[in-house]
Amino acid sequence: MFSNNDLYENNTFENNGAGVAVMFSKKIKMLTNTFKENWGTASYGLLLKEINDAEITGNIFKENTIGINIEGSNRIRYTKNSFIKNGWAIKVRGACYTNIFSNNNFMYNSFDVSYNSKLNDNKFDKNYWSGYTGYDLDKDGIGDVPYRPVKLFSYIVNRTPETIILMRSLFIDMIDFSEKVSPVFTPDNLLDNYPLMKSKND
């Protein structure tokens, strides 16, 4: 907290009861860290609160209940991170503006991105999403149909947490699908317009 211009590099944060919390700081750099198996009811990989102009690059978030919990953080660049098998990959709690997520891998997370409002000012570009079902006709490696990372179910769970008991039921899949076709509750400008067809696994 209250410590600017920090650099976190090559650390591994594993099996924590809570997770790594970074708050009220500017110009932080986080490079190639690994956050994994912070798997409990109140655990997260990384918690950001009031962080501005930071850069989070090349980190691996694996099997955390929440990969990154973001609140009141602006102008952060998330690039080349991998979010693998998390409960929530990214949970946006509000007041987060002009963040950029690009070239990340989102693989097999229960929820990719969760928002608690309809307002969105963050950019998602050129990420790989394992839940992407579109096609690539011109074979340039970028899907032709935009991907919507926020599912209706994650919106519902945010509003009424108890509904999580319905996870993976057929009805939920159906309403998720209909929301995907015509978004009503989730932010309609929250899209990845250039989803990658293949993960950046190198």
Partner: peptide, 21 residues
């Protein structure tokens, strides 16, 4: 629903379910 929950309980995701209360 019951059998869905029963199977979910045995998978890792059960921690996700315990999150709410």
């Amino acid at each position: 629903d019951l059998s869905r929950i029963l199977i979910l309980l045995k998978l890792d995701i059960s921690a996700l379910l315990g999150y709410t209360g």
